[in-house]
Design a protein around this nucleic acid. Structure first.
Lengths: 354, 354
DNA sequence: TAGGGAACTGGGACCGGTCACAGTGTGCAC
DNA sequence: GTGCACACTGTGACCGGTCCCAGTTCCCTA
């Protein structure tokens, strides 16, 4: 039995609406798709008939005829644990969902953390269940990249992809500049032993943030002050901070490659009885909600969320409609707060240009 | 241009495969759907032809003809912040995804935190984009319940629904018994001033856990030891604990209605310099990952995740196939750890029956 | 050897839309 | 008064599958 056929009798089709309105299927279809070249009288009759019959267009029929499904997925190529801890996904889902809806697209979230689900994703793209996908949090040269390229799928990558992924359009932020800027800031407030907690170095975001840190420090880089977190999680940040404190108890600042890592680091510092920022200044990256609610509020690199979402949607829609948009890089800026000794205010932050 | 038509030329259809294999469309369709009543020779020819042409069935065509889409959504009727902090969703996504795939169903996650997205959901169900939905974290008498009932949608609720939702099939756990059990345990280890941090009381889970606590304490309930958290979040747990400590500094135990709330409560206790469990014993609910990694490990009420996922999928599939399954209630059990003074071990916990 | 059922195959109808095209009617310019 | 552009409408083909039914083959049994 068809799910559509359950419940209150047979489901009305476009023919029923046409009959009730006294027009043809074509006219109903035109009303459905914007109402161009339809007389006001006919449009009104159709609207009334749709109301009266409780008509809802069949998704599959429309999709079959038009070649569009109207559904896109935010694909997380990562275990669900990561998904559910990282605040990045939180705003991404919200902002993308909102914008896509205004394009008549529905956003779903799909996990692709194993081979079976990746294969399923490719099948859904090829089979037309999904019109396109946004890839978030890719690692290294993900084999999914090659598959997506092979079928010329409408895909956009959030963040600078590595390996073959670079051939897909992507939207990223000035990670290197931002990291250099905040490291510079730590130097300017007089810190001398500035440690770094990087994200997993098989992501280009983590690589670039590390490069920015190195760039700012120049010859003053000390390998004892470097620690790679296993993943972007609070837990990993705490562990990394403990590791760093064990190696160099006299460090006076730490730059964590994400606010979540910084939050974990702050927990480790607090557990040792170290004061922030008096003993150790802490800086993060992303300017997520977390940075504002942390105690003390976290100095961080602001990423332009709204612009990122705009760009992702624009690029994705371009791809779905057959165009070939270029990759986008958006500027970050410093957002200084109390964790580096700057009193929190409603300030606009310091813009960073390339 | 159809998304399916982009890239490597025209997309092969079932007719192309049939021609290449030298059989009819019907035979190819039969192979596609399990291969019953197909000769081994024909099946092999079709398989080869599919391989050779790179055939992938059109989702919409199949869906239109069969009346099934093969897609279901986990619907979160809540803001995305909640989704991304609560570990409950984490395992739910994982376990449901796995089980649904073996039924040939794809799981997506959909947020329904505003009117527009709820309306969209109903349209997707009626339009056949989705075959069914799992509702998680519903509050009060959600208006979505009535809409789903009106269209007789294949929906299953995770947790005991309130209001009209009760007419939908649901899968829940013995919240009341579990809460009573863990409160009883706190009494048995000699605690006299046992506080509670409840979840938002417009959810039946929170109501039942509070009722269990009241049941166990009987006449000894002290309203000064009661505090409702605004939401199931670490932050809210911390705030509630601070509130409780302000009202009754001499409290010697706290039962939080979820592990996440308990985690926040532990942070607040630690910030006050109170020892766990020496000064204050802490108990949670859910037995999420968090309970194991907390310091100290958290005594909690174990919910049978695997059985819950099994039941949700069974009920949902029943509904999709037109049956009318009954609601399910699964038993919880105590999982005692160091936060109530019990040394952590690999023990099986204490089963709780109704 | 005829009859009958099981295993397998092909083809037409159908799912419910969209789209291109062929009208129809009206008003305005020449 | 004819021509023509413009606004609108109806119709049939088509999207790519599934499903049902009729037909064929083959084997087994009476």
């Amino acid at each position: 039995m068809s799910p559509r056929a359950r419940g209150s009798g047979p489901v009305p089709t476009i023919r029923d609406v046409a009959k009730a309105a006294g027009v043809s299927r074509g006219t109903v279809s035109r009303v459905l798709n914007g109402g161009h070249w339809v007389s006001p009288a006919a449009a009104a009759a159709v609207e009334a008939a749709m109301q009266q019959t409780g008509y809802v267009a069949s998704h599959s029929a429309r999709s079959l005829a038009s070649g569009r499904s109207g559904a896109v997925a935010l694909v997380v190529t990562e275990t669900q644990e990561r998904l559910f801890e990282d605040p990045t996904f939180s705003w991404l889902v919200k902002e993308l969902g909102l914008r896509l809806r205004s394009h008549g697209l529905t956003l779903f979230i799909a996990l692709a953390d194993d081979t079976a689900s990746r294969a399923g994703l490719v099948r859904q793209l090829r089979g037309g269940l999904l019109d396109g996908i946004v890839l978030a949090s890719t690692h290294g040269d993900d084999p999914l990249f090659a598959e997506l390229l092979a079928i010329d799928a409408a895909a956009v990558v959030f963040g600078h992809p590595l390996g073959r992924g670079i051939e897909l359009p992507y939207v990223t932020t000035t990670n290197l500049t931002g990291a250099a800027g905040i490291t510079q800031h730590l130097m300017e407030i007089g810190r001398r032993r500035i440690a770094i907690i990087t994200g997993p170095l098989d992501t280009s975001g983590a690589q670039q943030r590390l490069a920015g840190y190195r760039l700012a420090l120049g010859a003053r880089v000390d390998e004892a002050l470097f620690c790679e977190a296993a993943e972007y999680s609070r837990q990993a940040g705490r562990a990394a901070m403990q590791e760093l404190l064990g190696r160099q108890p006299a460090l006076d600042a730490v730059f964590a490659a994400s606010d979540l890592l910084a939050d974990g680091a702050m927990a480790a510092l607090a557990a040792r009885g170290l004061r922030i920022p008096a003993d150790v200044a802490v800086a993060g990256f992303d300017d997520s909600m977390l940075a504002r609610t942390a105690t003390p509020p976290l100095s961080t690199v602001h990423t332009p969320r709204s612009e990122v979402a705009d760009a992702l949607v624009r690029v994705l829609v371009d791809r779905i409609e057959g165009r070939r948009p270029a990759a986008v890089e958006l500027a970050t800026r410093l957002e200084l707060r109390e964790s580096t000794g700057v009193p929190s205010g409603p300030g606009q932050g310091v813009p960073l240009s390339e």
